[in-house]
Design a binder for these strands. Structure first.
Lengths: 208, 208
DNA sequence: GTCTATAAACGGATAGAC
DNA sequence: GTCTATCCGTTTATAGAC
């Protein structure tokens, strides 16, 4: 699911494309995809508008590439880590903590993923929604397993999974790097709010 | 804080402006403020683009008006109700339940409020952020009172307040009117997830 | 009040020189 | 690879007739 983007293996074209994607992701987080102009991106990376068209294949395709990169981050940093944990209780903790950390570390691509699906073509949108769906199912399946283990209170796992996602995704809107809590501390607090609400013995789980 | 908008007390100009705001809010929820054109709004209300300008003072001012209306809804339906509840525990339940209901009832203006602050002028943005701040403080103050009452677990009230807001605001992104749960049921489930996580005796509280 | 017509500006994208 | 210059569609907003 990585974007192809025919590389011209020349000496002086290292990660310029990544540089452009990074700048774009940051601007999108600030003012939204539609409000962002190609000129702004160019200015951010010290080029002209026409110059960056050497690296991208249109504004919309760039958005698609950024979103796929954001999903790659989630797949690697969250699912990649958590899926190796057999115990459902510990796995849920791993999911919430690693996702929260990813956001507080400032991964703009993950934030773009939340809001800008409307900017994609129908075919692209379908693919991104599909990848999101896999991620959502991973969380809900973990809750279902917890329920089978008798460790979950009487809550609807679909609503619970969406609620957990809501807490996590909203972090990128209010978290400030210069705030009084570190990224790790934020992750711990969100963990307390989320898990305390659903596990039968929340304190035991969090003392891990 | 109501918008003035010099009414011309003529016979045939009743709530045409409200009609326009409603149509606009719905489109904004679907595709975002920047992607929405004045032509789309016109089409939705059965007029031409020029006709609409008789009622509004520009696209940006219309967004500002819609957002203030959304804040009015929150002030009335949530704060207006909950502030009359003295007991902090019952007040928190009232806040979460009435906010969730407001969203599942399809108040588009409240949803617009979440995402489109970037579309405002700096002065307008400042005012909306100020009103949001008051709302946030109302929730956090309730949590602080709970803590003083010894009814709150050891969680950071700022992070907890943001987490509650995250769960609530995210509802508008996934709730479907034709889903298997009603708006009331959604509100109840979110209540369980949110309160269970923080109250010392969540079950007692929810049995109200 | 609502329309037709149009002004004025902007933004995505490309051509072609270097 | 990066630039200058430019094309072309779109969009906000207004003028002015009815």
């Amino acid at each position: 699911m990585m974007r192809p983007q025919k590389r011209i293996a020349r000496s002086s074209e290292p990660d310029r494309r990544a540089e452009i994607y990074d700048a774009a992701a940051k601007i999108i987080c600030d003012k939204g995809f539609d409000a962002m102009t190609m000129n702004e991106i160019a200015q951010a990376v010290g080029m002209t508008k026409a110059g960056i068209y050497h690296y991208i294949e249109g504004k919309q395709n760039m958005l698609f590439a950024i979103m796929n990169y954001g999903m790659d981050m989630l797949d690697q940093s969250v699912i990649g880590v958590a899926s190796q944990v057999d115990d459902a209780e510990k796995r849920l903790i791993a999911i919430i903590h690693s996702h929260a950390r990813l956001i507080t570390q400032g991964s703009n691509a993950v934030t773009v993923l939340v809001d800008e699906v409307a900017g994609l073509s129908p075919a692209q949108r379908k693919k991104i929604i599909q990848r999101k769906r896999v991620y959502f199912d991973f969380i809900r399946d973990t809750l279902e397993q917890l329920k089978r283990d008798g460790k979950l209170k009487d809550v609807d796992t679909t609503v619970a999974a969406f609620s957990i996602l809501g807490m996590l995704l909203w972090i990128s809107r209010w978290y400030r790097h210069d705030g009084k809590l570190t990224g790790d501390q934020i992750a711990d607090e969100v963990l307390k709010v989320a898990l305390g609400g659903m596990l039968r013995s929340p304190l035991r789980a969090l003392r891990k």
